[in-house]
Simulated assay, not measured.
Amino acid sequence: MPHVFPEWVAELTDPRRARTLEELADRLVPLAEQAVDVSRRLQEQLADLNAPFETDALRALVDGLQRRAEGAFTEVNAEIEGTARTRMDRLLASERPEGRDALRAELIEALTGQQRVVAERLSACTGTAVQNAAKVLLDRTAELARSVAGLVQQVLPAAQEGLALAGRVSGLTGRVRAQGRGGVPRWIMTEAAELAGVADETLARLELEWSMTGARAAAARTALRAAEEAAVSEVTAALAREVADLAPEHIRVLGDLEHRVLTRIATESSGDLPESVR
């Protein structure tokens, strides 16, 4: 059931029900204000639609992808370093106190070399993944920007139509006030009634256009956000694959190092340190 205002609303606002020139002029003014308001809101929505596709915004989008990729690299690399550090601490706990400093230095040197290899591989993987993801992201953004540009061109005349309507209403308001006071001449009432009808239809259509444009703007922002998240997911997936490829060799290196150290500790404890494990 459509909403209906009380009868007195139309009685006090509809120019077609005005009895004097003063009443007519006073009722025409809000029509012009409404037309200006909906035009302004439409223009703001169009500006909001365009904003994510400006040069600075696109640069910020790629920079954001880079920052999040760096964060993912740092997190993964730190986790791998933590695993190696845990092994080192376990090995140090097995050594006699007087030999721990020397063993610590040896372990740090060996683990640092291995970690450097891992970090270089992960860094190269991250860089390549970011480049690929950024290209896809910018391609999708460009495609979306073309669609948005078409929407802007479609809606822009509506905003201009609202301003044109406001100009017509303001012009009539000026002529009405120039007539002075008293009853409304028939020719003025005819023009006012015709313009009020046009205003009713135009304002309703522009309000609908504003609502639809708002929904499309929200959909465009959602799509842009989804493209950004897809780019980040592409980078993190590439990192995960690289870690999976690195894992067997990394575990083998750590295992060999642990075996050497444990063999050395066991041999030192027996007082016979073979040259091969020194």
Rank of each mutant, 00 (worst) to 15 (best):
L208N: 13
G214Y: 02
R216Q: 14
W210A: 14
L206R: 05
M189N: 06
L206Q: 02
T202I: 02
A218Q: 13
L206E: 02
A217M: 13
T213C: 02
A218Y: 07
L195R: 02
E191G: 07
T190L: 13
A217P: 04
A218I: 04
E191F: 01
D200Q: 08
R205T: 09
A196Q: 01
A196V: 08
P185L: 07
E207R: 12
M212T: 15
T202C: 04
M212S: 14
A196Y: 04
R216H: 11
A218C: 02
A199F: 08
E191L: 03
A204E: 09
G197R: 14
R205Y: 09
A217D: 06
L208E: 15
D200A: 11
R216V: 15
E207K: 13
E201G: 04
T202S: 10
E194A: 12
A192C: 04
A199S: 08
W210P: 09
A192M: 03
S211T: 10
E194K: 14
W187I: 11
L206T: 03
E209K: 12
R205C: 09
T202Q: 06
S211W: 07
L195N: 04
G214I: 04
E194Y: 12
E209M: 12
M189D: 01
G197E: 11
R205G: 11
M189S: 06
E207T: 13
T213Y: 00
S211L: 09
A199N: 02
E191N: 07
A215F: 01
R205F: 10
R186A: 09
S211A: 09
P185V: 03
M189H: 01
V198F: 05
A217T: 15
E209Y: 05
A196P: 04
G214D: 00
T202K: 03
W187P: 07
P185M: 01
L195P: 05
A215K: 12
E194M: 11
T202V: 05
A196E: 05
T213Q: 04
R186W: 03
E207Y: 03
L203H: 00
V198I: 04
I188N: 07
A215S: 13
T213R: 02
W210V: 14
E191R: 13
G214H: 04
A215L: 14
A217H: 11
I188K: 01
E207V: 00
E201V: 05
R186T: 10
T213K: 00
L206W: 05
E201W: 00
V198M: 04
R205H: 12
E207I: 07
L208P: 10
A193L: 08
L195F: 08
G214L: 04
A199M: 07
L208A: 15
R205M: 09
A204M: 04
M212H: 12
L206N: 03
D200E: 09
L206I: 05
A196S: 06
S211M: 06
E207N: 14
L203V: 05
D200S: 02
A192G: 03
D200N: 09
T202N: 00
V198P: 06
G197N: 15
I188L: 11
L208G: 14
A204S: 12
A218K: 10
E207D: 15
G214M: 01
L208C: 08
L208R: 15
G197D: 15
L203M: 05
R186C: 02
L208F: 15
